[in-house]
C-alpha cells in the first residue's frame, strides 16, 4: 500500500513540475517592456528601485531571453516557490502569499457551505431518482441537473439579483457588508448576521450550479449498484427495500462518491472567480480575477500554482480515501 501511495506522490510532484513549466511559459507571452509598464508608477513614487525592477525582470525571464537565461530564471522562480515565496503582487503591493491568506477564508466559507448543501440535497435526490428509474421524478430531476450545468454563473447571478435583490428587496445586491451601516465594537452578532445576509445569494448560485452534478453522479452509481448480484442476494434474504437501498446499496455507492469529493478541493479553496466578482465578495477568486485583468504576473502565477497544488493534493486524497472506504483495495 505504501508503495502505491509513494508512486502516486511521485507522480503528483512530477505533474506539479510540468504545470509549473507551463505556467512559467505564460510569461513568455509578455511583451518586452511589460514589467517596465507595470512598475513605472512604483518606480516613480520611489517604492521600487531600478535594481528591484531588474531583479523582477530576471525572475520572470524577461531580462535574458536566451534559452539558458530562461532556464536560470525558471530555476530561481521555482526555488522561490518552494521556499514559500510567491513574489510580490504588482496590483496589491504585498506579498502574494499574504494576499492569498487574507482573502481565502471568505471563499472557503462560501464554497464549503454550498458543498454541504449540494451533498444534503443532491445525494438523496440521486438515490430517489435511481430507485424510481424512469419515473416522472427521475426525468424532472435529471433535466434539472442538466439545467444546472447549462447556466452560466453570471447569468444565474444576474437573474437572482434582479428578482431577490432588486424587485423583492430581500437580499442585498453586492458586497460583503452593508457600507452604510455602522456597527459598534461589540456588535459581533450583528456583523455576523449582516455578512451572512450578504452571502445568501452567492451561496445559492454556487449550490444551484453544483447540485445537479452531485445528483447525477449519485444516480448513475446507485443504478449500477442496484443492478448487481449482491443486491439480489440481499433481497432474497428477506430484507426490506428500504434496508436494501440505504444500507447495502448506498454503502457501495459511497465509494465513488467519497473519492469524487476530493476533486472538489480546488473549488473549495480556490474561490469562484466569476460569482465572487459579480457579487463583489472580497474573496480569493475576486482578487485573482482583478489581478489577472491587470496583468499582475506574480499574483497570477502564484495563484495558479496554488490551484495546481490543490488539484494534485485532491488527487492524492482521493487515492487515500479510496483505500479507506473500499475494503477490496486495502491489501493490494
Amino acid at each position: 500500500m505504501w508503495k502505491y501511495l509513494a508512486k502516486r506522490l511521485a507522480l503528483g510532484v512530477l505533474i506539479l513540475f510540468g504545470v509549473s513549466i507551463l505556467i512559467y511559459m505564460l510569461t513568455m507571452l509578455m511583451p518586452a517592456d511589460y514589467i517596465d509598464n507595470q512598475t513605472a508608477a512604483a518606480l516613480q513614487s520611489g517604492a521600487m528601485t531600478k535594481e528591484d525592477v531588474q531583479h523582477l525582470k530576471e525572475l520572470y525571464g524577461l531580462a535574458d531571453k536566451s534559452f539558458t537565461g530562461i532556464l536560470k530564471s525558471y530555476a530561481k522562480w521555482l526555488s522561490n516557490v518552494m521556499k514559500g515565496n510567491l513574489g510580490r503582487s504588482f496590483v496589491y503591493g504585498r506579498p502574494v502569499t499574504e494576499v492569498l491568506s487574507d482573502y481565502i477564508w471568505i471563499s472557503f466559507l462560501i464554497a464549503f457551505i454550498s458543498y454541504i448543501l449540494e451533498i444534503i440535497i443532491g445525494i438523496p435526490m440521486g438515490i430517489k431518482a435511481a430507485v424510481n428509474q424512469y419515473s416522472p421524478y427521475d426525468y424532472t430531476v435529471s433535466v434539472f441537473a442538466m439545467m444546472g450545468a447549462s447556466l452560466p454563473s453570471f447569468f444565474l447571478s444576474a437573474l437572482l439579483m434582479n428578482v431577490f435583490a432588486i424587485r423583492l428587496g430581500i437580499f442585498p445586491l453586492q458586497g460583503l457588508t452593508t457600507a452604510t451601516k455602522i456597527f459598534g465594537p461589540n456588535d459581533h452578532l450583528q456583523i455576523f448576521l449582516d455578512k451572512a445576509w450578504h452571502l445568501v445569494l452567492p451561496i445559492t448560485v454556487l449550490t444551484l450550479l453544483g447540485v445537479g452534478g452531485t445528483m447525477k453522479f449519485t444516480r448513475t452509481n446507485m443504478l449500477e449498484v442496484l443492478n448487481s448480484d449482491y443486491i439480489r442476494t440481499a433481497r432474497a434474504k428477506g430484507l426490506s427495500e428500504k434496508t436494501v437501498t440505504y444500507k447495502h446499496a448506498f454503502r457501495n455507492t459511497m465509494i465513488p462518491l467519497v473519492t469524487s469529493l476530493s476533486g472538489m478541493l480546488p473549488g473549495l479553496f480556490g474561490g469562484a472567480m466569476i460569482t465572487e466578482t459579480v457579487f463583489a465578495i472580497p474573496g480569493i477568486g475576486y482578487m485573482a480575477l482583478r489581478a489577472t485583468q491587470q496583468g499582475d504576473i506574480p499574483f497570477v502565477m502564484g495563484y495558479n500554482m496554488f490551484l495546481a497544488i490543490l488539484t494534485v493534493s485532491g488527487m492524492l486524497i482521493s487515492d487515500i480515501m479510496y483505500m479507506v472506504v473500499d475494503p477490496r483495495v486495502k491489501l493490494s
Binding site: 505533474i15 506539479l16 504545470v19 507551463l22 505556467i23 505564460l26 507571452l29 480546488p266 480556490g270 472567480m273 466569476i274 485573482a288 480575477l289 489577472t292 485583468q293 497570477v300 495563484y303 495558479n304 490551484l307 495546481a308 488539484t311 494534485v312 488527487m315
Partner: peptide, 11 residues
C-alpha cells in the same frame, strides 16, 4: 491539473 478558467483568463 491546469485550472481551466484561470488559465484561459490569463491567456
Amino acid at each position: 491539473c491546469l485550472p481551466g478558467l484561470p488559465i484561459l483568463l490569463i491567456l
